[in-house]
């Protein structure tokens, strides 16, 4: 009996040890001699998240650069950071700067290595009969976001701060998921307003099925802030600096190609993400984004990100200058 109990204790301890010892190392080359990169990002159907991955894969940009990229899809925000921290992914794109800063202050071995999206490209929609027409109407209302620490979460927290400054009640954030989940939640009255990114549901807005209530541009001064960033696992980056730089170079070059070839990009996007939206609707994305917002450098608005991380409770205390320099490691950016 004692022997069994001792064995059970040891086995359980060993399993906890294995679970707690996650450390990615250098990735082995594939059979074709390409270097493996494990990528994590959220909401793969969205313009800023899935499109560059789908286009780089379809156009063979990764292959040309000697990379074999495998993607893992997350719920956004801190979930992308978790994937990178745990070593399931080497690099995470389109994750919120505040979530990354919060994770770093808790001891997460990550670096922010580039900007991903500059500005807050979100919109909040509601049912036409909801009575919601503008930002002020969202006071005290239930608003959906993707995941804790995501840019959609930060957007609601910033909006609430704005509403409170105007003497109104703050919004009630509800973790719902991506835009399709938010649409279902709005239509079934689980929440009052859901988030989306262009061009999703804008056709429904055009035909009166939904109304747009607020736009990211109205919420805080985020136009010049890298709201979403690219992060990497610190250990992996140290062991694979050239691969990280190559990945960033391909990522940036892919955006160049997308903006130079919008029709082809829309076709790839529709097929790869299995979207029901027409290519015409998908092409309207280019009315909402310009190339500059999606550049990997410069990474602007660090002070705002650092302040938000503390103000919104993702980091318990402000980072020291040394910590900021350690976290924002832009040495992997391609020279060009």
């Amino acid at each position: 009996m004692r022997k069994t109990l001792a064995t059970m204790t040891l086995l359980t301890t060993a399993s906890v040890a294995v679970a707690g010892c996650s450390a990615p190392g250098g990735n082995e080359p594939t059979e074709e001699g390409e270097t493996q990169v494990n990528l994590a990002f959220s909401n793969p159907t969205i313009f800023t998240t899935g499109l560059p991955y789908y286009v780089a894969t379809a156009q063979g940009f990764y292959e040309e650069a000697g990379l074999s990229v495998d993607a893992t899809f997350t719920g956004g925000g801190s979930e992308t950071v978790q994937a990178v921290v745990s070593g399931s992914a080497d690099i995470g794109t389109e994750t919120s700067g505040a979530a990354a800063i919060g994770a770093y202050t808790s001891g997460a071995p990550i670096d922010i290595i580039a900007a991903s999206t500059t500005g807050l490209d979100l919109q909040w929609f509601a049912e036409p009969d909801s009575g919601l027409e503008n930002r002020a109407d969202l006071a005290g209302k239930r608003m959906g976001y993707s995941s804790t620490g995501s840019s959609s979460h930060i957007g609601i927290l910033a909006l609430s701060e704005l509403l409170e400054a105007e003497g109104l009640a703050p919004a009630q954030p509800e973790s719902i998921g991506g835009p399709p989940d938010n649409l279902t939640a709005v239509q079934t009255d689980q929440i009052d307003a859901g988030w989306t990114q262009p061009p999703f549901f804008l056709d429904r807005v055009a035909n009166g099925e939904l109304v747009l209530v607020a736009d990211g541009a109205e919420i805080g001064d985020y136009a010049d802030v890298a709201m979403r960033v690219i992060i990497g696992n610190e250990t992996w980056l140290e062991e694979n600096p050239e691969t990280a730089t190559t990945f960033l170079e391909v990522h940036d070059r892919t955006w160049d190609w997308i903006f130079d070839n919008p029709e082809e990009a829309a076709t790839i996007w529709k097929e790869a993400a299995d979207l029901e939206l027409s290519e015409e609707v998908l092409l309207t994305s280019f009315d909402y984004y310009d190339r500059e917002e999606l550049r990997i450098a410069p990474l602007d608005g660090r002070d705002v990100l650092l302040d938000d991380a503390v103000e919104f409770g993702f980091a318990e205390q402000p980072l020291t200058d040394e910590e900021v320099n350690d976290l924002f490691n832009l040495s992997y950016l391609p020279e060009s």
Binding site: T13, V16, A17, A19, G20, C21, S22, A23, V85, S106, G107, A108, P109
Partner: peptide, 13 residues
């Protein structure tokens, strides 16, 4: 003991 000796990463456990 495992956490104190960093046999288990204290960030996770």
């Amino acid at each position: 003991i495992a956490v104190r000796t960093e046999l288990i990463n204290p960030f996770f456990v």
